[in-house]
């Protein structure tokens, strides 16, 4: 299975469009949004816009890598018959999904780090060493929730449907979850929706680290529930697909 993970990595790194979107794009977006920011604090967080958006965009980048990396490729490879061909090898069934997720996770790491670098070097964001490390760890680990979602979409949709579905989910979760702008700027009814979204809880994990706190239990619990939901859905859809073959 390691060889499959290795090959998935090589492929991910060769795919320039995928790399651009998941590694460069979030950092660029961060610089655009935080471009003219001063040191005004965001309501109720004690964080500057640059610090606040750094976590948002790092989360967004990781989300891009794992969600896009899984959904579209799995759907495409189901269609091309590669998934079928792999089932003729001794590779265990879940090995394919694990390799895909591992491949995506390795791309998501640089996308997080590049946003951090842009924030630290260009926008002078300063944090303690432990905070940088904890942020990286928390955002990286949290992206697994969306990797599972990507797998579920990959087994749910096929052909022409997978891209629009992925895009709707991707932008919906990113924008409504407050990754592009603080959800505190939303009208009240949108804020009520936003706080139940996994992306909202996801960004909140990193923000808690920036505020020198432990991530909130409610956010972890919410993400855990979503993970179980997405992973369970993915497993169910995978099994259905296997029987249909």
């Amino acid at each position: 299975m390691n060889s499959l993970i290795k090959l998935e990595l090589i492929r991910a790194l060769r795919n320039k469009k995928f790399l651009f979107f998941s590694v460069i794009y979030p950092a660029v977006l961060f610089l655009i949004i935080a471009g003219n920011a001063d040191d005004t604090k965001i309501d109720g967080t004690g964080l500057t816009l640059a610090t606040y958006m750094m976590v948002s965009m790092a989360s967004f980048g990781a989300l891009t890598a794992v969600l896009m990396g899984n959904s579209e490729r799995i759907a495409k490879e189901r269609e091309s018959g590669w998934v079928r061909q792999l089932r003729l090898t001794p590779l265990p069934g879940r090995g394919y999904v694990l390799a895909k997720t591992a491949g995506a996770a390795v791309v998501s790491l640089p996308s997080i780090v590049v946003v951090f670098l842009a924030a630290a070097v260009i926008k002078d964001v300063r944090l303690d060493a432990w905070q940088w490390l904890a942020l990286t760890g928390v955002i990286w680990a949290g992206s697994l929730v969306f990797a599972a979602l990507g797998v579920a979409i990959g087994y749910l949709a096929s052909g022409d449907a997978v891209r629009p579905i992925t895009m709707i989910v991707y932008f919906g979760l990113s924008i409504l979850g407050g990754l592009w702008m603080p959800s505190t700027t939303f009208p009240q009814f949108l804020q009520d929706i936003a706080k139940w979204l996994p992306t909202h809880a996801y960004a909140a994990l990193g923000r808690a680290v920036e505020q020198s706190q432990a991530p909130h239990t409610t956010d972890i619990a919410l993400l855990a529930v979503y993970f179980v939901l997405f992973a369970g859905g993915a497993a169910w859809l995978y099994r259905k697909d296997t029987l249909k073959a």
Binding site: L7, I10, R11, E77, S80, G81, W82, Q85, T89, L91
Partner: peptide, 26 residues
């Protein structure tokens, strides 16, 4: 060992990489 008509191949990799993968899975 089997080849199917409906069996696809992995994109974006070379022939040698794909064959090496298959060998490592056996």
């Amino acid at each position: 060992g089997a080849m199917l008509q409906s069996g696809g191949l992995m994109d974006d990799v070379t022939v040698a990489e794909l064959v090496r993968l298959s060998c490592s899975l056996h």
